[in-house]
Design a protein around this nucleic acid. Sequence first.
DNA 1: TCCGGCACATGACAGAAGTCATGGTCGCCG
DNA 2: CGGCGACCATGACTTCTGTCATGTGCCGGA
Lengths: 200, 200
Amino acid sequence: MIRVVIAEDQAMVLGALAALLEIEGDFDVVGRAADGEMALTLCMETKPDVLLTDIEMPKMTGLELAAAVRKQAPGTRVIILTTFARAGYLRRALDAGANGYLLKDSPAERLANAVRLVHQGGRAIDPELAAEAWSEPDPLTDRERQVLRMAGDGQTSADIATSLRLSEGTVRNYLSEAISKLGAANRIEAARIAREKGWL
Amino acid sequence: MIRVVIAEDQAMVLGALAALLEIEGDFDVVGRAADGEMALTLCMETKPDVLLTDIEMPKMTGLELAAAVRKQAPGTRVIILTTFARAGYLRRALDAGANGYLLKDSPAERLANAVRLVHQGGRAIDPELAAEAWSEPDPLTDRERQVLRMAGDGQTSADIATSLRLSEGTVRNYLSEAISKLGAANRIEAARIAREKGWL
DNA sequence: TCCGGCACATGACAGAAGTCATGGTCGCCG
DNA sequence: CGGCGACCATGACTTCTGTCATGTGCCGGA
């Protein structure tokens, strides 16, 4: 039996994933956590073979959790399971010591196999992502990203200029460059595109 | 046996939900759909007792799907299962003829009971949401909503005016009214607020 | 060392966005 | 019928946005 802890903030999905593994017969779900801190505690108490975790959770993200588990419960191997096919996330997950990275978009059958593979010492990277990881990199500079994020929340150029202690013209210029780099027609579209690519 | 079709765009979650129901013993998952159109086709072919559907899906939203199923497969009862505790969604779901509305945040045990309840002719509204449903109603008119949605995607007033065969001034006026009704400072913030409330 | 490339920064100007006053149409109620 | 309120529609006016020309400082390669 492979002993598994699952961390996922949507209770319904958490329960469903547990059912999905238990129906296979060779998994024992020894812990369920609704946030990162609870997951870390559970991992230290139960020393599971595998931790399956979402990224976006309250209190501690799955990426922080992966790093903490690697330090404090080194026998446990970590699989990240998330909605987001963002190249940046995969890189940070591997840096944090994760042994697997799956997308919620990929078929359910893949989950059990990935857990088995990682338990045996292998790696399980979602193929959809492995390709995308080497695709177009974020073209935005730090300032452009910062300004675009604020503009996407509805702040005016003047608001942003005040917050960042810049002139209004400068802010508009960053936005203009971001708009041009992303092939957008205005700040709204630019923010939407950047968000979709995971660059904000 | 209660015959169920599930519609959910994240394949992993779809599979997990199916496992969750099948493990109970009294459900038969007769169809799985990754988008709204596929779900509608499946419902017309298999005439399930209950359709369990997400809201945000490609091609056809869960709300549109609920309305279509009510018309074209009236024997099938519909439960909406979604992440979003937005009052506007619940209201529109009930208007569309849904018999249940569950949140992915609520415990997994509740799902099976809700499906059984709805199958017996009852209603299953998530208690977290039932209270919130009677809060502030959508203040936007049809035109305002339509224009705000397009503006929120990054279209300019001129684009929108052309699409809807209006003068540019009219479009700007609708946006101005929406901005004022929502207490926003500009179209971007207005679109964000409306989206969060489930009014778009 | 000198130059080119890059990120950062600014202001002037044309064009888009937001506000306001105004008027039209429809349905509803006294 | 007449008045009222809600929604739809428009143009004039002010404010905000997006673009462009310009300039600075910093780093790495020839």
